[in-house]
């Protein structure tokens, strides 16, 4: 057996984030420790305002902690300049924003291909990978539509395609099923699960237990602290599939 442990893709070490100062300061996160390994799918659940989006933003390098360290594939984000950080985000991190954050003047496939092209992937190859990502989220036929020609649910799927395109090793998704019907939501979970099974580290913020249940670990957050965790047991005594 290998002595080396599983490969850590994301590590949050004693991370705190406080917004504002003095009497009006809000401690959004307090001393959070969280590690996600390659191939692991972690869901984050908690009431509104408990710090889920703040946690995801720190993990994706979109925000910096007030104290503590964030490491992506062992690189401390605090040590990176803006350009290096932007490059790491494009290459290694796929991020699904709660409000999609798509470019309205680009078509669906162009939105998805954009991070690849910014990263120097040849246009034709980026286009091919973008189409593949759109296929995975179930909307290959909408590749040439612009954002104002799509429903909220369809835009959400474009946003998810943009996060999984290429070979991102860390996928962060903030309530990615909010605008989706339950069948489509299920499809998105299948996509995230299969990315994890292919070796990516996935962190999903959701308030839907049925979606969180696709994860290997479910982390519960309250008032900016991780208060509990549920890890699937896959206990054959509890669940015995019919004998084949």
């Amino acid at each position: 057996m290998s002595v080396q442990g599983p490969q850590q893709v994301l590590e949050l070490a004693k991370v705190s984030r406080t917004f504002g100062q003095g009497a009006t300061a809000v401690a959004a996160l307090r001393d959070v420790d969280l590690t996600i390994n390659a191939g692991e799918f972690v869901a984050v659940m908690g009431p509104s305002g408990s710090g889920k989006s703040s946690l995801l933003a720190l993990a994706g390098g979109l925000d910096r902690p007030t104290s503590g360290g964030v490491f992506v594939e062992s690189t401390p984000l605090a040590g990176l300049g803006l350009n290096a950080l932007a490059r790491l985000r494009r290459r290694a991190v796929g991020y699904v924003f709660q409000d999609f954050n798509l470019v309205p003047t680009l078509s669906a496939v162009e939105n998805v291909a954009l991070p690849l092209e910014l990263d120097g992937v040849p246009a034709r190859k980026a286009h091919r990978q973008a189409l593949d990502a759109l296929r995975q989220v179930g909307i290959p036929g909408l590749a040439d539509r612009f954002m104002d020609e799509m429903s909220g649910g369809q835009q959400q799927r474009v946003a998810i395609a943009r996060a999984i395109v290429g070979s991102r090793r860390l996928i962060l998704a903030d309530e990615p099923t909010g605008a989706l019907d339950s069948t489509t939501g299920h499809g998105v979970m299948e996509v995230l699960r299969s990315r994890a099974d292919d070796g990516a580290a996935v962190m999903l913020v959701t308030h839907e237990a049925r979606h969180a249940a696709w994860a290997d670990r479910v982390v519960f957050i309250r008032d900016g602290r991780i208060v509990d965790e549920a890890t699937a047991m896959h206990d054959p005594a509890v669940l015995l599939a019919p004998a084949g």
Binding site: A212, W214, F220, E229, A230, A232, H234, L239, G244
Partner: peptide, 29 residues
């Protein structure tokens, strides 16, 4: 919270079992 974590564990197991069964479904499934 203790109940929520326990229920979530069960839900994870059901979900995994459903996924595995659906992946190679026999008529009897």
């Amino acid at each position: 919270q203790a109940q929520r974590a326990a229920s979530m564990r069960a839900l994870q197991d059901y979900t995994k079992s459903r996924r595995d069964t659906a992946a190679n479904q026999r008529a009897a499934d």
